[in-house]
Design a protein around this nucleic acid. Structure first.
Lengths: 223, 223
DNA sequence: GAAACGCCTTGACGAGAATCAATTGCTCTG
DNA sequence: CAGAGCAATTGATTCTCGTCAAGGCGTTTC
């Protein structure tokens, strides 16, 4: 089971979907349309979720309309847990046929209480999440636009399912990428154009790319 | 027990030092000088720590010399836990006579294994930490220099010990603040000057201030 | 007490990215 | 297939903040 975003400066995601999948029988399944909201900012957070298929974005909206995508959620990711009783982000699906399993928070709590092994697993996930958030702090704090975009592409490659033979899909729009990296859409577009014209990456279409020069791509990153 | 940084967009810090202080008897005490390193980036992370007195900074250095302060550590904060086996940040003391308790990770693990209540407490701390890191993502992603500095001041006020009657100390240098907010020192200085000249805050000296117009200060923040 | 040093502030300038504006391309719908 | 509407790209301009430079203030040291 994973929580999110690796890449340079990021803790590795351990692909442990299988390890925790027994828990999936405890939850309820559901499929969502593209753009559909799983839960809203300020909603009561009495459920945990695991994304099985598709992609989603976890984001907040500031009072003056600026949006920040805190994380992209991909197959295997567990999310929805908090210290407080309410969510601080909303989660919206990016692709259609995104499927989730939903768990009751109470049930998770009592399971952790009775099963130290499960509790430990959740703790590991939480710690990994902290590590990754720290990496993201560095990315957002100390890097230029081109570094961010390069780091993002590397991250997407490392999260892609391995059977795609080098072709990596970007389920999210350029706007989503912009709000994830905290730069303007136009800057995302320009950075991608730069990388393409320097033969670092190649696009099949706007949503599918391939790395041409991995070394050059990694050289762009801050770490 | 707390982990760090509240402020706008931040999860509240529950002051629960007392609640976990029994654990302090399990660790070893130590006092540090200003500037002293508690542990370095890449060090083996087989200990947890709790800061009792003073202040410290948790930071990373990128290969090209840029520094990012991930968090300031204040009395009551627990830190040093990770998913991996190594630290990804270094921790350095800011003030002299900073005192810490150090715990063996193994001992913590077995305590959590045998004591579900303690395990739960640690989990809460981890979740709270995730909440705060998310808030920080928003701060670093979607805000201007003045907003960051304002948010930082509010955060410092909320973390200050209550008996100071409105006078809040800043143990860290302007350089530390700059690397925490991911802006240049000069920009920190200019922002503080702006806030001072607009009668939002007042300084006793460079390291002690007082809020004059709280409403105006909060209005600067992004949330 | 003078010199040296680090910390903080202020000013001038320039770089990088945001914003504004316009065009193209793609997809969905009727 | 045409038109609407959104996604993506590109260009022109503006603006915030980083960088460079210099000076002030406070503290330490001998």
């Amino acid at each position: 089971m994973q929580l999110a975003t690796p890449g340079p400066h990021c803790a590795p995601r351990t692909p442990v979907i299988a390890r925790l999948s027994p828990m999936d029988s405890l939850g309820t399944w559901r499929s969502y349309e593209a753009g559909e909201t799983v839960y809203g900012q300020e909603d009561v957070g009495d459920h945990w979720y695991r994304l099985l298929e598709g992609a989603a974005r976890k984001c907040t909206l500031t009072s003056d309309g600026r949006r920040q995508i805190v994380d992209f959620l991909m197959p295997g990711d567990l999310f929805g847990f908090h210290a407080g009783s309410r969510h601080d982000c909303s989660v919206e699906c990016i692709t259609s046929d995104t499927t989730m399993v939903r768990f009751q928070r109470q049930q998770m709590e009592s399971l952790m209480e009775s099963d130290p092994h499960f509790a430990r697993r959740v703790r590991e996930i939480a710690f990994a999440s902290i590590d990754r958030m720290q990496s993201r702090t560095i990315l957002l704090g100390r890097s230029r636009a081109l570094e961010r975009v390069s780091g993002f592409l590397i991250e997407m490659v490392s999260r892609a399912s391995p059977e795609t033979k080098g072709i990596v899909g970007l389920p999210m729009s350029r706007y989503d990428i912009a709000d994830y990296l905290a730069i303007a859409v136009e800057t995302v577009s320009r950075s991608l154009t730069t990388l393409r014209s320097e033969q670092v990456i190649a696009f099949l279409d706007a949503r599918h790319f391939r790395i041409v020069n991995r070394r050059a791509l990694e050289a762009q990153c801050c770490n």
